[in-house]
Design a protein around this nucleic acid. Structure first.
Lengths: 220, 220
DNA sequence: AATATTTTTTAGCTTTGTCTAAATTTATTT
DNA sequence: AAATAAATTTAGACAAAGCTAAAAAATATT
């Protein structure tokens, strides 16, 4: 087991997430995601290539190698276990866990993480509904649909939220929407694709298309 | 609240511990403690002085300023709370907690530490028996004596172990001596100052002066 | 197809924290 | 009190990770 610097780990994790979208990642994309400059990204790409974590040809975009993916899943495992711990045990709010987990994830003791996993009871999903890779880096996958795609009058359970930005989480928490919330689509407005939903005994309310596309649910 | 680098924190912590002994610290001492070179120490001393964490005149030795002490106690608080967590909740062994806490202590979120403290039930001592500074940096102090100073036939309880080196911990664990163990001094041999002690129902055994001086106890 | 624009890379500089080797200061011997 | 030894600091280099400005490659536009 090799150890990577905090900086290398942040790059690896960001590439992993970006390549989920399009399969391959560009220099500018990554620079934006990491709030850094394209030139700095190029520098790091060369280092990660030498370490065989990356498939990369200058000017051609890049993606993680098999080994790179394995490293990324290790980091994500640590991140999500800490998020679970912070939320479940220390009673942090939803929107606070991410920033702290971002720091804790770089503590790399394998034994620490495996014991933490055991202590937490081998949770399968973090507080945002994202699956937690197991000790072998295996990731549970589920077919989820967004509220935007949910049929009218269908009930569903919130399983995941795709964006972890403070703004989204603030809005969700204002609406009392969290992982596990049961909701039902009452109406869809084709003008702006906004969606009227109802939760429990509350009166129904409307959410934007943008938000609806960020709330993932499983059919009941 | 300013933030300090991992390296700065390690220097501050090491200086704090070293100055407990003699009041003031030398360049070579600190270099040895940090497994680094005296020249590197001098470089860092200059930086810490600029940040007003250190009283330092070239060639004259140095010690932490009031502010430096405050920072050190914050780091020690984090370290000892994590040690307690690892030992108490994750069931790490005595001798394993230190190395992992060494990494966790640099995660600096104040909220994280205060919530962890609350979750753990505001423990006053870490697994080695060292007091944990409170949220204001206040440190409980007790007057402890070593087994070497304990009178014959006096019973006492192990409260603290001064050295955290693997060798000492290995020896203690072999003897089944841990924080809270009750023991009684049976005899002292003036030839080499070794001490015969008895614990519970076990037959008595002899420990070296060196070890006896590293085991701190409170009178019963 | 030639030009313009965008993206990416290169070149060269900065900071942090480390190192070695040499110089300097302090302490110890004789 | 010199001379020697030990401790400390300075000078100069290096690696990691970032930056700006300029060059080069790929894409888009006319």
């Amino acid at each position: 087991m090799v150890n990577y610097s905090v900086s290398e780990e942040n790059y690896i994790k960001a590439i992993f997430h970006l390549q989920q979208q399009a399969g391959t990642v560009t220099t500018n994309e990554l620079a934006a995601a990491l709030h850094t400059r394209p030139a700095s990204v190029t520098d790091m790409l060369k280092k990660l290539k030498v370490k065989k974590l990356l498939h990369y040809q200058p000017y051609q975009g890049f993606r993680l190698s098999a080994e790179g993916n394995k490293v990324a899943l290790g980091i994500i495992r640590r991140h999500r276990l800490w998020e679970y711990f912070l939320s479940e045990k220390l009673k942090f709010n939803w929107e606070e866990v991410h920033a702290v987990a971002e720091e804790l994830e770089h503590v790399s003791s394998k034994k620490l993480i495996d014991k933490l996993d055991e202590y937490l009871g081998y949770p399968r999903f973090d507080p945002h509904g994202d699956p937690i890779p197991d000790a072998n880096g295996k990731l549970e996958s589920e077919t989820l649909i967004t509220v935007a795609d949910l049929a009218v009058n269908k009930a569903a359970v919130v399983a995941k939220v795709s964006s972890h930005s403070g703004e989204v989480l603030e809005l969700l928490s204002h609406r009392h929407i969290s992982i596990g919330s049961r909701l039902e689509v009452k109406r869809k407005f084709s003008f702006d694709n906004s969606v009227e939903i109802k939760m429990g005994r509350q009166s129904s309310f409307t959410i934007s298309e943008q938000l609806a596309k960020n709330i993932f649910v499983t059919h009941e």
